[in-house]
């Protein structure tokens, strides 16, 4: 199941040219970029790991594309996303965030139904991938 989230969740995966154009857009607005990765793509997991440091004072998207390439080489089978942070007063929030890399095989989620008192049902969604330890979740078997 193809996981989607963030600004361009409704679009097919962006190409490198498109990613670069989006990064340029962030830099034009003076939003510092950071790159994050995870292998626990649960929709409520907001704490992804940051790759390197947030990139301040960068003028040209080529520098960020280079870091992104390094991140992809290190974590080819992780989810990787790009964040553009708007630090302006009164906003101070992630302004743009999109997935730029995903594992080759995404097993998806299953719904766990827990029956509690009075025949109520509680639903939990779990990723099939998280059965395995961190770092080995999307490895080839």
């Amino acid at each position: 199941m193809r996981i989607t989230q963030g600004t361009f969740s409704y679009l097919p995966d962006l190409t490198d040219v498109e990613i670069k154009a989006q990064i340029q857009y962030c830099l034009d607005h003076e939003w510092p970029i950071s790159i994050e990765y995870t292998d626990d793509p649960h929709p409520r997991n907001v704490y992804w790991d940051m790759f390197g440091l947030p990139m301040f004072d960068i003028k040209d998207p080529a520098a960020i594309m280079q870091t992104l390439a390094e991140c992809k080489a290190t974590f080819p089978n992780h989810y990787i996303r790009v964040n553009g942070f708007d630090r302006s007063h009164g906003r101070a929030t992630t302004a743009l965030q999109f997935i730029v890399n995903r594992p080759a095989y995404e097993p998806g989620f299953y719904v766990d139904r827990q029956e509690v008192s009075d025949r109520q049902i509680r639903y939990t969604i779990r990723s099939y991938a998280v059965d395995r330890p961190v770092g080995h979740r999307y490895e080839e078997k």
């Binding site: 990139m55 003028k59 040209d60 520098a63």
Partner: peptide, 8 residues
Amino acid sequence: MLKKAMGG
């Protein structure tokens, strides 16, 4: 530094 100088 190299990253900061890119494009310039």
